[in-house]
């Protein structure tokens, strides 16, 4: 069994009010390390066996069509060991 991870993030130029709210909350709790925070989504997809290149192409397609909205988001597909 392998796990394929798809990370979806808002494009850098798209305003991220949730990330901004988290960034504003951190210093209130004494965490002063952050200069900015962006919030995204992570999908964990399990498949039987090791992924074939064809399967990874399919996942890329699904990430493009459903998991992300290419108008406002970027995605990265990777296999987690």
């Amino acid at each position: 069994m392998a796990k394929i991870v798809v990370d979806v993030m808002l494009k850098p130029e798209i305003l991220d009010p949730q990330g901004n709210a988290v960034a504003a909350a951190l210093p209130r709790l004494g965490f002063t390390f952050a200069t900015s925070v962006r919030q995204g989504k992570r999908f964990e997809i399990e498949i039987d066996g090791e992924p074939t290149p064809a399967q990874l192409t399919e996942v890329e397609k699904a990430a493009e069509v459903l998991l992300s909205n290419p108008v406002i988001e970027n995605y990265v597909v990777r296999v987690e060991k």
Binding site: L10, I14, L15, P17, Q18, A21, N69, V71, I72
Partner: peptide
């Protein structure tokens, strides 16, 4: 309609949440 690509652009979280 935006998600269906019948209209361009996207609707995102209100700026003040």
């Amino acid at each position: 309609l935006c998600e269906s690509h019948l209209l361009p652009g996207a609707l995102t979280r209100n700026a003040d949440l």
